[in-house]
Simulated scan of single mutants.
Amino acid sequence: SYRQLVLIAISHDAPLQAGGWQFKFKDKRNSILKNYADLHSEIQNLEQMRIIEDSNRGFSLGGSSAPLRLSLFGQTIFDELDLASVPEEDKQLVIQMISKVNNA
């Protein structure tokens, strides 16, 4: 999805602060998280494809609370698709969504 491309662009600039979400999203009582289930799914998909990975240990599928960084494969995608051209406002929108989940 386009948002996944934006997530790749964001993680090129700095690690995604989305580690450990697997545990956060298991809490069914938090209604705020329901609004961001699709974002969580997209991040999980990027991890499964090994485009982003745990910044401490590599591939983790969201089990660690460490930030998620771009893998070598992700860097290749970033370069080949010229994701440096992703508009800053699109990146800021997704960063705000990540922040809302982290604060939920």
Rank of each mutant, 00 (worst) to 15 (best):
V6R: 02
L93F: 09
Q75D: 13
F23A: 15
G62F: 03
L93S: 04
N35F: 06
R50K: 13
I51A: 02
A9R: 04
W21K: 02
K24L: 13
P15Y: 10
I52L: 07
L83D: 02
A9Q: 02
S64T: 13
L33A: 07
Q48V: 10
E88C: 13
Q48L: 06
Q4P: 03
A104V: 04
Y36T: 01
I51T: 03
E53M: 03
N103Y: 02
V101Q: 04
G74F: 08
E80N: 08
P15D: 14
V94F: 02
N103K: 11
Q92D: 11
A9T: 05
D13G: 01
S64Y: 08
K24C: 06
Y2K: 06
F78G: 01
Q75P: 00
G20T: 10
D38W: 04
A66L: 11
D13W: 04
G74P: 06
N35K: 12
W21P: 00
I8M: 03
I95V: 11
Q48I: 09
V86F: 00
R3G: 00
D90M: 09
P87R: 12
N45K: 08
L72K: 08
P15I: 15
N30D: 15
K34D: 01
L83S: 01
I10W: 06
V86S: 04
N103V: 04
G58K: 07
V94R: 03
K34G: 00
P67H: 11
F23W: 13
G19Y: 11
V86W: 00
N102M: 03
S1Q: 05
A104W: 05
S64K: 12
F59G: 00
N35G: 02
G74Y: 06
S11Y: 08
E89P: 01
K28I: 14
Q4C: 04
G19M: 11
L61S: 08
P15T: 15
W21M: 00
G19L: 04
D13K: 11
H40R: 13
F78T: 00
N45S: 10
K24G: 03
N102Q: 11
I51Q: 01
E80L: 12
N102L: 06
A66Q: 12
D79S: 10
N103L: 07
E89Y: 09
K24I: 14
